[in-house]
């Protein structure tokens, strides 16, 4: 279970351009579910995902991930949780340009100190699973949007996380590729993963695979179904 208690996040506190992206959110997300955070641009979806994924600290409130309170943990422990518990699929995928798909998939596991050959084997297995093994040695810029997306998913899975966080994963994809993405997520859910997606794409919220949709506006939850 991931629990958020009264979470707020204020940027540029005390300055003229101060703004609060997330305001006093209380939320519990069960493990092994697919949850979609829905809302217009600026509603606080990405900020909320960042906070859940230990990429940003909340200004107020507490977060518990699998019974562990993480809000007050020092940076080193947060990094460890981020690496071992969460896998990220970013908007625009944020793949590192100039290197191959295989290397991109391997990077998140570098600090773990696994044997290089073992790591490469693991990355290749993931690329095979996502049907992109033939493009493993190609630089990511030469891949199509769909291939880049699958590379990003493989990268999110390399450290075998329990939770996959995806921020606007279908923003630049057509309907077919968006459907493909959702099918992949459903497959991962079947393997026991928890999926958290922030998207204003109706395809995500309306997918039959989605278990829960949380609607956000102006940094607050305004509905749920």
């Amino acid at each position: 279970m991931i629990t958020l208690a009264n979470i707020s996040k204020t940027f540029n506190a005390g300055r003229q351009n101060e703004f609060t992206a997330v305001k006093g959110i209380n939320l519990s997300i069960a493990m092994n579910t697919i949850t979609v955070l829905k809302g217009p641009s600026g509603s606080g979806k990405t900020t909320l995902l960042s906070i859940i994924g230990c990429m940003a600290r909340p200004t107020a409130g507490r977060i518990t991930v699998q019974e562990r309170e993480i809000t007050s943990l020092p940076e080193r422990f947060l990094t460890e949780i981020r690496r071992n518990t969460f896998g990220f699929v970013f908007q625009n995928f944020n793949l590192i340009k100039g290197v191959t798909a295989l290397e991109n998939v391997m990077f998140p596991a570098f600090p773990a100190g696994l044997r290089h050959a073992e790591l490469q084997e693991r990355a290749m297995r993931l690329l095979e699973k996502l049907k992109i093994a033939s493009k493993a040695r190609q630089n990511v810029e030469s891949l199509s949007g769909g291939e880049q997306q699958r590379t990003a998913i493989a990268r999110a899975l390399i450290n075998e996380p329990a939770v996959i966080i995806a921020d606007e994963p279908t923003a630049h994809l057509d309907t077919e590729l968006s459907g493909e993405f959702m099918d992949t997520m459903a497959g991962l859910h079947a393997e026991g993963k928890t999926i958290l997606i922030a998207s204003h794409d109706p395809l995500m919220a309306e997918s039959e695979n989605t278990h829960r949709v949380i609607e956000l506006r102006d940094g607050q939850i305004i509905g749920e179904h």
């Binding site: 990429m55 940076e75 990094t79 071992n84 990077f107 600090p111």
Partner: peptide, 13 residues
Amino acid sequence: IEIGVLKALGWDT
């Protein structure tokens, strides 16, 4: 951005 991505992916400072 690359440093941000690496950190998000689990790299420590």
